[in-house]
Design a protein around this nucleic acid. Structure first.
Lengths: 341, 341
DNA sequence: AAAAATTGTTCAATCGATTGCGCATGATAC
DNA sequence: GTATCATGCGCAATCGATTGAACAATTTTT
């Protein structure tokens, strides 16, 4: 009848014993008579007793909840990462509280504050593109709340980090374009303040250098992920005196949009211009020609992050970990030139 | 030094007064001398006092957290809905706990159990495609936890519901195809157990009837959202003795994949066959020809759901609401026939 | 048979807040 | 000068668990 839940007090009253005994019987701690325990378990079962998580939270000062801060859920990369985090967390009996920073430092800071206020047991975070400082993380360290950074990491902080080989995979992607006979490779690079973007750009440049290709400023364009001005950049590249014969794009959406513009301008892909994307979105499989791209292990990065975090939650002395999860080059037709020179 | 947080007890001790007074001063309840209050606020400020949310949760039996259960975060529709939910919730000072059912009834049930165990103040849910019963929701109603169903709703339950006009928009989409001169319109419909899919199918059929087109079984194909066998279905349609001259697809990914197969088979879009998608994915803007589609108001549905839920959380006697958020037909080239008969 | 150890249980404090009730104190009323 | 009342504050219970310490009751040891 009453919507009040059953407590150990209720069980104790029914059996005419004390709360302590009930508690000990249920948590199987020690020193409870087998018969008493049996009776307690029976009554508990019968009343469908569920321990009040709120009381436990207060008493034990933990919540069995981990906080996650990501730039945005609509980004497929992060959506998949959440999947990995949740799988691991739920299996371990943890809930997941998700916040979006919307690529804003202020929001990220607020998210962090509210997660801390909620007493989450640990935090997994991928910093916003706007974030260029780390002072807001001090509170976490100060309160000794375990943190794992993933993908968009902060190498300067002494915390666990999970990342992928942005440099190496960009190097590999660029080298692949070179091997296809491309001479003038342009890149649409990400925001300069993002560590990952810089790594990717470096991988691209070093691959060019290795193969004695010049690195030309005019072939490097910085964009953000929203892709507002991709069309403009594409036209710019098309109209260069030395038009590039390949382009390595920041992400698949940019790549697809560029392909669209190239085709409208009568350029053949990949022979006039090869296109390599980033992120392995579904879309890449269905465009004409199918898009070569780089598969980022987002799900795995999420899962690994959660595992590391849980280890640190369970054992405060667990060591900081830095873990690499490898990306993979996926070659389709948009970079596959039949006629290599 | 100590990582223990400041409590009202600390403040009380410093000022040599009782906890009660501190509490009353901070919550501005009543009956506190202005001077005493001032001193308390000062000390609180100085020590950077933050009330312990866990203690409040226990005392007040609420958590300022709302639970969300969706089929999957990688689905862009739901990812956007989460955005809307979070925006509204955060502005109101609520946290959001997100669970994925992975389109599984069992998982959905487990999610629900863990949200209830976490004492969330309310739940927003879009049921899994596998869910064909409602018994697991009884516990929510029994515990009087406010619920809002959105998009994938359950009309049979007496709870708030937020949905879009699947029937009307499918009717409109089909009518649009008819107006473009299409005679034989096929449909790739969603899973039959989903309410939304049935509504969409009905809209399609009724539009055909209204314009005296026959409804042919052979033009109706049921698929799920994973899109595993779209290619096969497409071939089936192409090889029909009376090949359709338009297809209305369950979602944009299916539509794009179909376009791909049509083009490979030498069919011209939209003149040989028009293609209409569903969901307004980014991808649709970049395929050749750009895809006509239906824009589902996912963000708004999330936001509206959160608003209704919060209203019910704040006032238990707030009425149940059923709210329609309209979809929109977006016409691009894949259905735009120049040569209407 | 007295001392010691074991077993099973209860008491009461604790986590960190809120809040009803009661008690001083001083002001006002009559 | 006593009765009444408002003001300001403290006591202690409460939310629902856990847990150290104390204490009976019984058994074992010597």
């Amino acid at each position: 009848m009453s919507s009040r839940s059953v407590t150990i007090k209720d069980i104790a009253k029914i059996l005419g014993i004390s709360k302590s005994t009930v508690s000990r019987a249920l948590s199987e701690h020690s020193d409870v008579n087998q018969e008493t325990r049996k009776k307690i378990l029976e009554v508990a079962q019968q009343l469908n007793y569920q321990p009040n998580a709120l009381a436990l939270n207060l008493k034990q000062q933990r919540t069995n909840t981990i906080g996650v801060i990501i730039p945005e859920t609509v980004n497929r990369f992060f959506a998949k990462a959440i999947g990995g985090i949740q799988r691991v967390a739920n299996l371990a009996g943890y809930n997941v509280m998700i916040c979006q920073s919307d690529e804003s430092y202020i929001t990220e800071k607020n998210n962090l504050r509210s997660l801390i206020a909620s007493h989450v047991d640990g935090v997994i975070i991928s910093v916003s593109s706007e974030t260029d400082r780390t002072d807001h993380f001090d509170l976490l360290l100060q309160k000794k709340i375990p943190v794992v950074f993933f993908d968009r990491i902060r190498e300067d902080l002494h915390t666990s980090q999970v990342y992928t080989d942005n440099y190496e995979i960009s190097f590999a992607g660029t080298e692949h374009l070179i091997q296809q006979g491309c001479q003038r490779i342009a890149i649409i690079a990400g925001p300069q303040n993002l560590h990952n973007s810089r790594n990717r750009l470096n991988g691209y440049m070093d691959a060019l250098k290795k193969h004695d290709r010049p690195v030309k400023e005019s072939y490097i364009v910085h964009s953000n992920f929203t892709g507002g001005n991709i069309e403009e950049y594409t036209r710019y590249l098309i109209n260069l005196p030395q038009r590039p014969d390949a382009v390595f794009a920041i992400n698949d959406y940019a790549a697809v949009e560029m392909m669209h513009v190239f085709k409208k301008n009568g350029l053949k892909i990949p022979d006039d211009i090869a296109v390599l994307g980033f992120n392995n979105e579904n879309i890449g499989r269905f465009v004409e020609p199918p898009l070569s791209t780089i598969d980022l292990p987002s799900y795995d990065m999420g899962a690994v992050s959660a595992e590391i975090l849980l280890a640190q939650i369970r054992d405060a002395s667990a060591p900081i970990q830095r873990k690499l999860v490898k990306s993979q080059l996926i070659i389709r037709e948009s970079t596959h030139r039949i006629t290599t020179p």
